[in-house]
């Protein structure tokens, strides 16, 4: 049985050489992976989205593929297609980049809805159907999709129902001064990617994932989670509240978070740590209110200990 807390520590230590000062984001990504969840990275270009995905793949020794989504990308470019082999006189399947363990879907919102939904379907079903034949995707299968903020031109925003398929939405933001200085100095950054050592084998990862379900949740924490969830359904604040699927994700993420802290029971602190990432992209505020602000408000207002 791998000690998840120490794995987490190693993971954080190593990733720090690539993207410094973003421990919390890396930890949340790790939590999502423990929960078999896909990650949506929403950020400005050039703050290290790709580096994060690549380093995660290396550290967890996962196959890595990358697809740059563009407006002329076709579903077949992602999933693969039947090609006619002239020599053998038969169709054979050319697997697309989706057949990998960790897929980085760069700038997902650049692509047309058709291409987007091809990927999102694969994420949900964990299999691909081409010309009537279902082909399972590798296990584990993770998608890390990056997305530019919606305000940028030439984008097709993902519909709410599809946003819900991402377990968490993370954003890196600008690095702090020290990290950026290190980056400029060359003491950290993507150039060091090759020096990363895997912290976990795929088999251990499976065991770690199983561990998540063993984490205990006390009645007090459940009540707290329910209070949070109910508050997101307050019609005066939210047009769209947290769905039961979202609530389930929140609970799972809290469990995984507890594990990364070396605990086998969930504390409200865990719930709070994952709440924003799990919730923000699944709810919609009333009257154009920013979900980020509202979710933070919910965290501040809902009493941790009692109703």
């Amino acid at each position: 049985m791998p000690d998840i807390a120490s794995v987490t520590q190693q993971l954080l230590d190593q990733s720090r050489t690539i993207i410094a000062g973003k421990d919390e984001v890396v930890r949340l990504a790790w939590v999502a992976i423990l929960c078999d969840g896909h990650i949506l990275l929403e950020d400005l270009p050039g703050v290290g989205k790709t580096s994060l995905a690549q380093s995660l793949a290396r550290l967890l020794s996962l196959d890595f593929q990358r697809v740059q989504f563009t407006s002329d990308l076709l579903p077949a470019d992602v999933l693969g297609a039947q090609m006619f082999n002239r020599e053998l006189s038969q169709f054979e399947f050319h697997a697309g980049p989706v057949f990998t363990q960790l897929l980085l879907a760069d700038e997902l919102n650049r692509a047309t809805p058709k291409a987007q939904s091809a990927l999102l379907e694969a994420m949900e079903e964990r299999q691909v159907s081409i010309d009537g034949i279902s082909r399972p995707l590798p296990d584990p299968f993770y998608v890390i999709a990056t997305q530019n903020p919606r305000s940028q031109s030439g984008t097709y925003p993902l519909p709410e129902s599809q946003l819900d398929r991402f377990f968490v939405r993370l954003s890196l933001g600008y690095p702090d001064t020290e990290s950026e200085k290190g980056l400029l100095r060359g003491t950290l950054g993507r150039t060091l990617m090759s020096e990363l050592q895997p912290v976990l084998s795929p088999e251990s990862l499976v065991r770690c994932k199983a561990e998540v379900h063993q984490v205990k949740v006390s009645e007090a924490v459940l009540d707290y989670v329910m209070r949070l969830v109910h508050r997101t359904r307050d019609a005066d604040l939210f047009r769209l509240g947290l769905s039961p699927r979202g609530a389930l994700a929140l609970m799972m993420a809290s469990r995984a978070m507890a594990l990364t802290q070396g605990r086998h029971y969930v504390m409200p602190d865990d719930v709070q740590a994952v709440f924003s990432s799990v919730t923000e992209h699944r709810v919609q505020g009333q009257r154009q209110l920013d979900p980020k602000v509202l979710v933070q408000q919910v965290l501040d207002d809902v009493d941790v200990l009692a109703a």
Binding site: P268, D269, D301, V302, V304, L305
Partner: peptide
């Protein structure tokens, strides 16, 4: 006082 959103640890 503890604020409502503050956990015991916080």
């Amino acid at each position: 006082k503890r604020t409502p959103g503050e956990t015991v640890s916080d």
